[in-house]
Nucleic acid binder design. Structure first.
Lengths: 203, 203
DNA sequence: CGATTTATTTATCGGTCGATACAGAAAGGT
DNA sequence: ACCTTTCTGTATCGACCGATAAATAAATCG
């Protein structure tokens, strides 16, 4: 059951990784085929044979990002001892992820709100889903805590999630604008100062 | 001292306004000349004669945005009775500005961090300056308050400004992703819950 | 009135975009 | 060996990009 035909001369995963870094940095429309083929070290026909199209490649790089770069948040949220620690880990982890030397600043999924202009409606939906998923993870973690009675039943879980998602997305922009890790960590700590107020029982 | 030559058949200000809406919505690279000329109701040579180039037009639309759309914040900050009210007005005003029916969602200046890919280094600097200016306005308002003794001298003014700027920029992304005005206003109120903690005197 | 100046329309420029046709090269199957 | 299959490099496709040259139209100036 060995492979038929001439074997590929490049590493598919490595090429995909390099494409991801480009799309992450410059967005979909902002990255040209010639930049892609140059960075991936292959010619256009090899790219099309291997990945299908520019958009299919983009979607695959986004999946790779979800799996390896933006990932780990689900586990971190679950591992935290309580909801407050989970949110803090989410923000502080984001501050670190958004400012890794040698990697584009900010979150590829968050920035795709703007950077994915030009992709098909189908792909845009997929991206919207990926962003909503993160929001869903946060809400789920908070609801789990509320279920344990650790949060007042009357507090607005989705509003809390919405607030911290917004802060994290703002951190993506700040990172792109040159903010340092220390600045983002200070922002994260600032956002945690709203925790008591947000989780206080409502009328 | 009347005008020489054939008079222009279109309203320059109106054409600029239409170009602004396009750039605001789709960014610099994402807006093509043919889209611009179609929306402005003129042919390409008229555009070049009147505005110089696509980039010069973009920069002029950004100036227009600064003056008429994003403006009013300086005055609002100054008019507020105290620093807390100023910050709250800034965030609540942003929530309103980012979700005006018939206008693109979010802030053109904030989104330019990502949407201005492709412009010259000179224009990019100008945009960075425009973003820093807003941050400077916030800091100045806070320092004025600290000078009056209404804020502890030990609290970190630039960190407070950085936090609220980050929230506001996050609101721009959320608006682009479809967030409603009510959601953004809730986020703004959430951010104000951090105020007491942020302005408490430090060790 | 011509002469000058400026704006408009039409047609098009060279360049780059994303995407492919084609022929040659390198593997397995028989 | 030969055929089939798959990948590779070259060379290029039509479409659109941002930007203009040239000819025409509409105003003021002398």
């Amino acid at each position: 059951m060995a492979e038929r035909g001439r074997p590929r001369t490049f590493d598919r995963g490595e090429a995909l990784h390099r494409a991801m870094l480009l799309f992450w940095e410059k967005g979909y429309q902002g990255t040209s085929m010639s930049e892609l083929t140059a960075a991936m070290g292959i010619n256009a026909p090899s790219l099309y044979a291997c990945f299908g199209s520019k958009e299919a490649l983009y979607r695959e790089t986004m999946a790779l990002y979800d799996d390896y770069e933006g990932g780990g948040f689900g586990a971190a949220l679950a591992a935290a001892p309580d909801a407050r620690a989970a949110i803090e880990a989410y923000l502080m982890g984001s501050a670190r992820l958004f400012t890794r030397p040698g990697k584009p600043a900010g979150c590829m999924v968050v920035l795709s709100v703007i950077q994915a202009a030009g992709v098909s409606e189908e792909a845009a939906c997929e991206l919207r889903g990926a962003r909503a998923e993160m929001s869903g993870l946060l809400e789920a973690r908070l609801r789990a805590e509320a279920g344990k009675g650790a949060l007042p039943a009357s507090c607005d879980i989705s509003a809390i999630a919405s607030f911290y998602i917004t802060v994290q997305q703002g951190m993506s922009i700040r990172a792109r604008d040159g903010a340092t890790r220390a600045e983002l960590e200070a922002v994260a700590q600032g956002a945690m100062l709203a925790w008591d107020g947000l989780t206080r029982a409502r009328a």
